[in-house]
Design a protein around this nucleic acid. Structure first.
Lengths: 325, 325
DNA sequence: GCGAGCCACAACGAACAGTTGTGCGCGCCT
DNA sequence: AGGCGCGCACAACTGTTCGTTGTGGCTCGC
């Protein structure tokens, strides 16, 4: 089925005449006639009844029309999603199940009709992502560099939101029945966070976390995939992992894993959005505005050093001074 | 843009190999390769990076994929909307702005994902509509015959819901400031309801209404279109019309028309659905069930004689006896 | 009855899709 | 390192399709 044929059908149905549709589409009347005939042959139904003054939809044509409109709209959106120059807003996230993607989805649901494409760059180095932002390959990226001075000239980083961490444990774990936990309850506990890229911002985050709360985080091992991690968690009585509270982790129901919030202070990973300083995509404004309206995390919050800057995390810096001694 | 090319793209993206997609689609690998290449030429972007073990989506490919899925789904729905034998539920309504269509829309919104096509047969005679139901041209029709004995053997009529009427008046009308009206306030009032087909069920309805409440309804005039009717209403101090409370009438804001509910008794037009006795479309069941859950109209209700049968409109028959003397 | 308007059919050339055959690049295994 | 397997792309060929021009038939209105 050719989208141009569908488009011709829609216009012909709206205008009531193949001739007018043909004029509008810049082809001859005969071409439109053939396109419609070809659609009718494909579908094995008549779409129009031909009259002396034009065409009129049959019942099948009436039923087909709204779907045809949706196809045409889909094609137009698809084209505009990739057309260089006028493309829809495109944002890089770490993974489609990450809290970042969940938050973007929230935004999209509260702003219906926004053309938004979520992609993953599939690179580890945030500076590569920054380069992609600068080059315009993506309009923004949910990455963080711990030292803003290392960003390209034309890229800056804005705070998006702080993603609280939760402990994910199996049913036999020592802490499996806890409703909430404070960080000191995690001391010396085996926490396995596989797949962290050495020297990445996540590695730095866990380094600081380990130092601040005297934890035992094993973030160096290879990542055998989520299935392996979940398998081990489900069976173990002393291995746990940390996940973002809004990450969309899924596991088979029989695993019976539990997510336990961590409070006093809440441990949070600061998510930022990298975007170009000059000519940012117009749709970005609404997104960053949306982040600004999010309510801050309740209670005291621990953040890594690079997020404890003037102007934000006011409470957190104080809290941290206390937790850090 | 060819939908088969888009479908090939989606499957190739999901399977990671053109070869597998080709096997699945029953064409050669080269054909799929050319389809993708043709898409890439149309869109002027690369959708895949070619690797030794298959293909991988580019950023543009990632952005394109969800739209491609929506196109394929739209095409599939479009085909199933007209495919004889397995077609989606198709229901005839009098007009797309009628209360019938509004109610169907309500149903559809509360049952997302239902494949439902709303069409208009564009015939006046309900018996022609009944024939269309019997022939399977439509799965059901929102028409009414006042004498069920005149229906084809294989078609029956089920009550859908009672549509209350409201008076539609312009700002200068005598009753323009009323919040509600009782039918006796309408006595002798000029009520213009153009476009009623003589001897149709609507004509009978207004005949009974006129008799029951001593009204002055002009339902015989030609229908010059809604614009003319609304124009006249907007200017007149004594002409009004009756509309269904849930009809989606629209008019320019500067017309300042008002809808005034009628109560004690509420005047209601009984809407029914004609459907085949044998092999009704499976989706119809959910629709009729939906109607059954609707709350009946509050207060006393007047209905025309053919709707005052045993088993329903219990209160109404009593009310009518009173109103009718 | 005739003309205007609109759609369908016919014929032609260009373009395209799909096929088979082949080549090239890459990873892997010996 | 060399050869093999695998997967995609290019080439050549063929049947089909698309869009064009030209034409005919139908219906409505004058």
């Amino acid at each position: 089925m050719d989208s141009e044929a569908v488009r011709s059908f829609v216009r012909a149905a709206e205008l009531g005449q193949l001739q007018h549709a043909a004029d509008e589409l810049g082809v001859t009347q005969q071409a439109v006639s053939k396109r419609i005939a070809s659609l009718e042959r494909d579908l094995e139904v008549r779409l129009f009844t031909r009259t002396a003054r034009g065409v009129e939809l049959t019942l099948d044509g009436q039923a087909f029309l709204p779907h045809a409109r949706s196809i045409v709209a889909g094609v137009d959106r698809a084209v505009s999603a990739v057309k260089p120059g006028s493309r829809a807003l495109r944002i890089d996230v770490l993974g489609l199940r990450s809290a970042q993607a969940v938050l973007l989805h929230d935004y999209w649901r509260s702003h219906p009709g926004t053309d938004l494409d979520v992609v993953t760059l599939k690179v580890d180095d945030p500076h590569v992502a920054a380069a992609a932002v600068q080059a315009g390959d993506v309009d923004a990226s949910f990455r963080t560099v711990t030292d803003p001075a290392t960003l390209p000239r034309d890229v800056h980083m804005v705070h998006a939101f702080d993603s609280p961490l939760e402990l994910l444990v199996g049913p036999r774990h020592l802490l499996a029945s806890a409703r909430t936990l404070t960080p000191d309850r995690l001391r010396k506990l085996r926490i396995w966070v596989p797949g962290i890229v050495p020297r990445s911002e996540w590695a730095e985050f866990y380094d600081e976390l380990v130092t601040a709360f005297d934890l035992r985080v094993d973030a160096t091992g290879p990542n055998f995939g989520n299935e392996v991690l979940l398998d081990i968690l489900a069976e173990s009585s002393d291995v746990a992992t940390l996940v973002g509270a809004r990450d969309r982790y899924i596991w088979p129901a029989n695993y019976d894993l539990r997510r336990i919030p961590i409070t006093d202070p809440t441990l949070a990973y600061p998510l930022s959005l990298m975007l170009p300083k000059t000519n940012p995509h117009p749709g970005l404004r609404a997104i960053t505005d949306h982040f600004a309206t999010l309510t801050p995390l309740p209670g005291t919050v621990w953040l890594p050093s690079w997020a404890r800057t003037a102007g934000r995390a006011r409470r957190s810096t104080v809290d941290i001074a206390a937790a850090d001694h």
